[in-house]
Design a protein around this nucleic acid. Sequence first.
DNA 1: GTCTATACAGTGATAGAC
DNA 2: GTCTATCACTGTATAGAC
Lengths: 214, 214
Amino acid sequence: MTASPTTCDRILDAAERLFADEGFHATSLRQITQAADANLAAVNYHFGSKQALILAVFRRRLDALNKARLTRLDAALTDSDRPDLEEILEAFIVPALAFTHGSEDAGHLFMRILMRAFAERDDQLHRALSAEYAHVMRRFASAIAVALPGVDEQCLRRHLDFIVGALTHTMAENGSSNGQAIANDLVRFAAAGLRSAVSVRNLDGATRTLEIHT
Amino acid sequence: MTASPTTCDRILDAAERLFADEGFHATSLRQITQAADANLAAVNYHFGSKQALILAVFRRRLDALNKARLTRLDAALTDSDRPDLEEILEAFIVPALAFTHGSEDAGHLFMRILMRAFAERDDQLHRALSAEYAHVMRRFASAIAVALPGVDEQCLRRHLDFIVGALTHTMAENGSSNGQAIANDLVRFAAAGLRSAVSVRNLDGATRTLEIHT
DNA sequence: GTCTATACAGTGATAGAC
DNA sequence: GTCTATCACTGTATAGAC
């Protein structure tokens, strides 16, 4: 069941489970290699460092998540001529929160790992991952820009940061409960927030008399 | 300049600076005590553990932030009879992002420490801090509930999580640039998101024919 | 009480033998 | 590729000096 063929995979599996259970910092390489029936030095041989091992554990699951996101985004875009904002947001949010309901091993572990990730990640990991998946963010930004014509580019980038922050914080906070309800809620919240920028901008351009807060 | 009177304060100052520069995990107690002209054991004597020292460093700044938030909230609530949603959100968001512009030592360090916090925090720290400042969240939740009559309680709690996540992620991502612009943006974004919940709920209760997404 | 010196078990990493 | 042995370093605990 847990006996994967190669040493590399056994280390990845053991590391994922231990990281999810105990946290990254609290898990030692000796624990991991012992659980994986491997030698201590094997980690540094195969991955280079503990940091790189953590990154590898993440990459394995985040690749799947972002592939699911892009697949759903493509479906939403080809679905109709004019992309629907809610569908785009669902393509980004639902796959992330969907693992929540999976009592499947991989899904459950992934969720707990993600909770750990945003509860404990260091910025090396953060930088590496956000660079690695920047193209995903760019694709969603483009799609939203089409669905919301007239939205300011810098404003859109900020709003995407808002959404990413809300999503990850909520995942870390709420664990594996109410995934679908939270997803619906966040989609509506984010859509309203995004649309508010466009309407304010339009009003501003049209009348120049809008009062700006503080 | 950096010579505070007591050993306790010197350790706190040195720890804050080193944590901001290098990160929590990467900074050793030996670095801290050396920079603070103190003995290694002084940390465990005064704070109990490295974890508790990290917590103490946070508490010193977060106390000030949350006091500023509550002061501004009180001002917004007594300002007029009916609380204004945007003013409430500003009371929560602006003080957090205001430190951004402070070239003052404390403000600048605080910002970088906060970036580290949400780039590296472990869940012990997270749990302790959110428990410690839960009353602040409760006060803001109550204020918003008054400003937005009819909003579902559970929904409001989720939305507050969205806002906290968006705020912290954005602070960690954008560093010390454009604080005021981001604050205005986030206030508008959050207000629109919050209002969307109320209008949807009202529509839902009134017509029962609203289509629910997916 | 406040602080110091010292010791300890455990960490990630690495060089070199097999 | 894999393993053993070893390194410098970590956070923590304690006994004792001021």
